[in-house]
Design a protein around this nucleic acid. Structure first.
Lengths: 173, 173
DNA sequence: ATTGAAATCCACTTGTA
DNA sequence: TACAAGTGGATTTCAAT
């Protein structure tokens, strides 16, 4: 069926995502970002479709990888993490092997929230949340400085942070 | 009852969080970070308590603000956001009013994932996710450069990112 | 504070348009 | 693909320890 195949490809090209992502999917995603634990009935009512239809949509979104998971957001203070920082880090040599090893091993440290490989003067941005400033210092000298590939770093301690919980789909144009 | 008050204060000081956070709470939180949509029965079975007890613990954690919410994680590509970057930004004057206005208004831009007020050479780290490099450029010149308080910025485009989904509680010692 | 049972509500499946 | 109904199962409440 070449006609159908062409249509599918057009949809993929237009939306930039296989499986189509219409307005209904976007609405479902928006509501699940806001509250992932609401019942399927609530969700269906809010987006204006039947519960069974809604359930099918959600399962499709999960299977397509659009929905990657459902996570509880925890107060950092309850996890004993009152100090948050980004650590801009430079490593040498800048080879694929070094970058990959650094990324994988650093993200495994319990203090680390995430590791970003970035373009610019710095090679990495390491996002950490630790108990206090003493423990940040401890992380820097006991973990980061111990690594042979690290040539320099500087800390950007976070005084305030404003994160967005619900992200809308950006327009194609 | 001064004895009880002293005990409560000791608990607060020791755990760093009012309401106590024992091992059971930590286990519940760990499982809910991994999968926020699992049923209460599953969760209860995994931590080894009765479903009704588990429900009570979860509700207490919510009421105490330890659990802040449940959010679905969405593939950025499905949201038409294939380019991610941090933008280190400097503003002047560095007054409380300017900082607060910048933070509140910039986080409201649809491209922005989060805004961090940081210590160091840069005043802010603006985390964005946009359609492509052209749109990143567009954000920089149409949004950021338009703001009177912005004196300079530099982009750190993210090539790879590794984020942690489950955060453990750090030890008190 | 934790538990077990009862009642209500929801998810999942099947059938149909 | 979307909807409607029925069944099995889960959530929630409540009484008791």
């Amino acid at each position: 069926m070449p006609g159908a195949a062409a249509t599918d490809l057009n949809i993929v090209r237009k939306c930039g995502y296989p499986g189509a992502m219409d307005e209904l999917d976007s609405e479902i995603i928006r509501h699940l970002q806001l509250d992932a634990r609401q019942t399927n009935r609530e969700l269906a009512r809010r987006v204006g479709i039947a519960p069974s239809t809604c359930l099918e949509r959600v399962r499709s979104l999960q299977q397509r990888g659009v929905i990657r998971g459902y996570h509880a957001a925890i107060d950092p203070a309850a996890l004993n993490r009152r100090v948050e920082a980004f650590i801009a880090t430079r490593v040498r040599p800048l080879s694929r092997a070094v970058i990959e090893a650094f990324r994988a091993q650093v993200v495994a440290y319990p203090e680390v929230l995430g590791v970003f490989v970035v373009a610019g003067d710095d090679d990495f941005l390491v996002h950490v949340a630790v108990r206090d400033l003493d423990h940040l210092h401890g992380f820097l000298i006991d973990r980061l400085s111990q690594r042979k590939e690290v040539v320099s770093f500087r800390s950007l301690v976070v005084y305030q942070s404003g994160r967005k919980e619900v992200l809308d789909r950006l327009p194609d144009a």
